[in-house]
Amino acid sequence: MSDAPMNERRSGANLSVPNADALDKAADVEGRSLWQDAFRRLQANRAAMISAIVLIVLAFICFVGPAFVPWSYEEIDWDILEATPPNFETGHYLGTDSLGRDLLARILQGGQVSFLVGILATSVALVIGVAVGATAGFMGGRVDQFLMRFVDVMYAVPLMFFIIILMVVFGRNFYLMFLAIGFVEWLTMSRIVRGQTLTLKNKEFIEAARASGGSTASIILRHIVPNVLGVVIVYVTLTIPQVILLESFLSFLGLGVQPPMTSWGALIAEGAQEMEITPRTLILPAVCLSTTLFCFNFLGDGLRDALDPKDR
């Protein structure tokens, strides 16, 4: 009809429908639920589906793979003691690092750390963020003011610096690291949840629940939480890669996991030292890390497109 870019026909998930008119009625006459609908849209998003499959496969290999690798991640092959190319006879399928440790075993172990950090630290952030956000949004008044002031103050803190200080404090403890990262990642989550809760609070079905005598806790649990879940899932999917990146960043600086344990970031740091001789030791862990981050981001974007009511 016209040649301006705005009028180009679009397809797929990013479809926009003219305001209020025409099509809003057409969408849910058959009474599909929000989740079924979202899942159907997600399935149609090929990038997101491939990402999900790649992530599952990668995680599976990282956690189950070491059982099938002849060497363990900390074992030094005393016959080698230097970086060597892949050799199937000695069982070093991806070669060894500069100390003669099996690179494949180390990459798999590093992957375990990355996935664990991603999921555990995000869970910590999720629990704190949802609890604070839902409480602040739902209770309102003083509670809301106090909690949000606190979040504001936390935002004014240079978080990267605090994580590093926390890493120094918790330096030798693998699990406290998750806690430390989770502790600083919950802020945005709490703001998002609070915003969603505030808009939900005045909706009719909450009024109805309150009128029929639901307690505050049960309203939060049974009505607010399920309804902010969509946004939260999207945000969680996008937080996991951030956390994984943060951990690799710390490990790169020598502040993350302690040797002989390793993570993708630590492997990249080691590889960077050797890259002139064996670029493999830099590139292989870098490819694993980037692929994982790529997939989480695509999955997160796909989920957002699938769950975002604005795009329907």
Partner: peptide, 10 residues
Amino acid sequence: MGLLADNGTA
């Protein structure tokens, strides 16, 4: 008005 949404044709 030429203001149809992008997925619309007339």
